[in-house]
């Protein structure tokens, strides 16, 4: 599978996938998308890289700890968002919404605390998917 064509396709496609996934993540509240999809898409990009270049490209297995902390951290982030709702006087997972004027595109974007929650979800999905990949790859 590590043909030249595949490698070069990967080189172009995976960055696009990553950026697109970030877009999906941030716009998830308004458009199709969200933490899951974005996370899976990022993972798909990373998987492509993995398939094309093997273990060496990122030194995957040296980074297994990084992915471990990635999903733990994501979990913690989501949990803390939920807790924040509890401490600001609501209940667990109480969400808040803020409207912020974006500086360049002159649009009013809504930032919901749910967005932060979604980022946690994103991190978990990324971390877990890549962990799985590295774990299975490392077995060799």
């Amino acid at each position: 599978m590590t043909s030249l064509i595949f490698k070069s396709i990967t080189k172009t496609v995976s960055p696009i996938l990553m950026i697109f996934s970030l877009y999906l993540l941030l716009r998830g509240h308004q458009m199709p998308g969200g933490g899951f999809i974005a996370g899976l898409m990022t993972s798909a990009g990373l998987v492509l890289i993995y398939l094309a270049y093997g273990c060496d490209f990122f030194d995957w297995h040296k980074r297994s700890r990084f992915f471990y902390y990635l999903f733990s951290g994501g979990l913690a982030l989501s949990f803390l968002t939920g807790l924040a709702g509890l401490f600001i006087g609501g209940t667990f997972l109480k969400s808040g919404v803020a409207h912020v004027e974006m500086p360049f595109i002159h649009e009013s974007w809504e930032f919901a605390s749910a967005g932060i929650f979604d980022i946690g979800v994103y991190l978990v999905v990324c971390g877990v998917c890549v962990s799985l990949m590295t774990l299975l790859g490392e077995e060799e």
Partner: peptide, 23 residues
């Protein structure tokens, strides 16, 4: 909840508790 994608709103807001445990 300030979101137009109702499915996503259900996931992260109305049923955020599910999602918390799902991850």
């Amino acid at each position: 909840a300030g979101g137009r994608n109702v499915v996503n709103v259900v996931i992260v807001d109305f049923r955020g508790f599910d999602t918390m445990f799902e991850i």
